[in-house]
Simulated assay, not measured.
Amino acid sequence: MIVTTDGRGNEVRIITNRFDLTAEELGDLYRSRWQIEMFFRWVKQNLKLTCFYGDSENAVMNQIWICLIAYCLLLLMKLELGTSRTLTELIEALKELMWQPWLRMVAAVERKPSRTSRGRQKKQKDQ
């Protein structure tokens, strides 16, 4: 068992069977592992990458790179259009207008919503 500190200065105890590494190296590995976990959480939430279709390292890396490229292209499209729409709304517009001309996509993104929702309203009490 080794004792190290996390990024906030809290004490962390790690049980290991890696006797060939120093406590400092094990602490660094643990912190790196946490960064990897945070990266995959971000990927799952933002890139909607929930499963891998291949088992090899190359297949996994290719799928991650494809998702990152698609995300970057979507951000560039948002900047190019200068829209306040969310990335989810842009993805939905892309799904609908995938094979349509670019100007039609621009018109769809710039179009004001046909209906505005004020949310659920409380009923007024009669007095």
Score class of each variant (00 low, 15 high):
residue 14 I to E: 07
residue 71 Y to F: 12
residue 64 I to F: 01
residue 118 R to F: 14
residue 33 R to C: 01
residue 7 G to S: 10
residue 105 M to S: 02
residue 108 A to Y: 15
residue 66 I to E: 14
residue 30 Y to P: 00
residue 93 A to Q: 08
residue 111 R to M: 08
residue 82 G to K: 13
residue 45 Q to Y: 06
residue 39 F to G: 08
residue 114 S to R: 10
residue 97 L to E: 05
residue 105 M to K: 14
residue 11 E to D: 08
residue 2 I to F: 15
residue 113 P to T: 00
residue 106 V to M: 13
residue 66 I to Y: 10
residue 97 L to H: 13
residue 53 Y to M: 11
residue 55 D to L: 11
residue 3 V to L: 02
residue 18 R to T: 05
residue 118 R to D: 04
residue 95 K to M: 05
residue 4 T to Y: 07
residue 50 T to Q: 07
residue 101 P to Q: 09
residue 108 A to D: 13
residue 87 L to E: 03
residue 93 A to M: 09
residue 9 G to R: 01
residue 54 G to N: 03
residue 112 K to S: 09
residue 104 R to H: 02
residue 76 L to H: 07
residue 50 T to H: 05
residue 96 E to Q: 13
residue 62 N to W: 03
residue 122 K to I: 13
residue 32 S to D: 01
residue 31 R to A: 07
residue 2 I to Y: 14
residue 84 S to E: 12
residue 68 L to A: 10
residue 11 E to F: 03
residue 19 F to C: 01
residue 123 K to N: 01
residue 35 Q to P: 00
residue 29 L to C: 01
residue 105 M to Y: 06
residue 24 E to N: 06
residue 89 E to A: 07
residue 98 M to K: 15
residue 100 Q to W: 12
residue 16 T to Q: 02
residue 74 L to C: 15
residue 71 Y to A: 12
residue 26 L to G: 04
residue 29 L to V: 01
residue 64 I to S: 02
residue 44 K to D: 11
residue 110 E to M: 03
residue 44 K to Q: 14
residue 76 L to R: 14
residue 41 R to E: 12
residue 75 L to F: 15
residue 4 T to M: 05
residue 22 T to A: 05
residue 44 K to W: 10
residue 121 Q to S: 14
residue 5 T to G: 11
residue 103 L to I: 05
residue 15 I to R: 04
residue 39 F to L: 15
residue 114 S to P: 10
residue 57 E to T: 03
residue 58 N to S: 08
